[in-house]
Simulated assay, not measured.
Amino acid sequence: MSSKVALITGAARGIGLATAKLMQADGWQIAMLDRDTDELAIALPQVPGAVALPYDVSQPDQVDQAMSDVFDQFGRLDALVNNAGVADFGPIEQTDFQRWRTVMETNLDGVFLCSQAAIPMLKASRGCLVNIASISGLRASTLRVAYGTSKAAVIQLTKQQAAELGEFGVRANCICPGPVRTKLAMAVHSQEIIDAYHDAIPLNRYGSEAEIGHAIAFLCSQKASYITGQILAADGGFDSTGVGLPALRD
């Protein structure tokens, strides 16, 4: 198979699924990884011809098996999109170590493990990494001690990857989505929070899953062939407006 191959983690829903659809439309072959096997089975027919990888990015043995499956199926890997993540918001004093580790093992450990396991194939293809962090990794906010810290670490990890892998032709970049109109966000954001975000974001709205997907697809493409080590906030301008939304403090 001569088409380029992209592995997208957290691909059963949201930004991951939107990215899989967009990149397939651009001619990529897609491997979709997600530990939620039920949702992955529902998502797979929406990306015809994609390969399902029902694994957990926080488990080293499962990550190794996923990479082995990709090589067995395609014989190559050109892009790894580290999108899998979890969110657990709460005050610092209520974030016990187990809650902290639950966030870190997926949001940070998963990015590290998948990237490490993919490096041999990415070196061979002179491919790329795109890590999905968050606006919460760029600007502090209440109730996000574990989530925000994990995403800030992903930003630094991306820079480390770019610095070390560039000589092999491997690019590493990071997307920091702002508020995105996902099903999960709409389920947990009150109208007060939605209104506060709209007021604080210069574009006065949430982003869409597809808008983040287009940014990811661009960084994976040859159009971004001289871009590495960069942190792109796809956030409607939210990062430019300062910190703190009173509606998020309760």
Rank of each mutant, 00 (worst) to 15 (best):
S3A: 14
S3P: 11
I8G: 09
T9P: 04
A12N: 02
G16D: 05
L17C: 04
L17I: 01
T19R: 02
A25E: 12
D26M: 12
W28L: 09
W28S: 02
I30D: 10
I30W: 09
A31N: 05
A31P: 11
M32F: 01
L33N: 08
D34E: 05
D36A: 04
T37E: 15
E39M: 14
L40E: 02
A41P: 05
L44W: 02
Q46I: 05
V47T: 12
G49A: 11
G49R: 07
D56I: 01
D56R: 08
P60H: 00
Q62I: 01
A66D: 09
V70W: 09
F71N: 14
F74C: 07
G75D: 10
G75H: 08
L77Q: 04
L77K: 08
G85H: 03
G85F: 03
V86Y: 04
A87L: 13
A87N: 13
D88R: 14
D88S: 14
G90H: 10
P91G: 11
I92N: 00
Q94P: 05
Q98S: 15
Q98H: 13
R99S: 14
W100H: 07
V103F: 03
M104P: 06
E105V: 03
N107R: 06
N107G: 10
L108M: 12
L108N: 00
D109A: 11
G110W: 01
Q116F: 00
A117H: 05
I119P: 02
I119K: 10
M121V: 08
M121C: 05
L122N: 03
L122H: 08
A124F: 08
A124C: 02
S125W: 06
G127R: 02
C128F: 00
A133Q: 04
S134K: 02
S134F: 01
S136V: 05
S136M: 12
A140G: 15
A140F: 03
L143Y: 13
A146L: 09
A146H: 06
T149M: 04
A153R: 10
I155H: 04
Q156L: 09
L157S: 03
T158A: 00
A162S: 12
A163E: 10
G166Q: 07
G169L: 03
A172L: 08
A172N: 10
N173Q: 09
C174G: 05
C174Y: 07
C174N: 13
I175W: 08
G178K: 06
G178S: 05
R181N: 12
K183W: 04
V188R: 08
V188H: 04
S190Q: 06
S190I: 12
S190P: 10
E192F: 06
E192Q: 15
Y197E: 07
H198I: 15
D199N: 13
A200C: 07
P202H: 11
L203W: 06
R205S: 00
G207R: 00
I212P: 02
G213E: 08
G213Q: 10
G213W: 07
H214N: 11
I216D: 11
I216T: 07
L219S: 11
C220S: 11
K223H: 15
T228I: 10
G229R: 11
G229L: 03
Q230R: 12
L232D: 03
L232F: 15
A233T: 07
A234I: 15
G236Q: 01
G236D: 06
G236M: 06
F238R: 15
T241P: 06
T241M: 15
V243K: 13
L245M: 14
P246T: 15
R249K: 13
D250K: 15
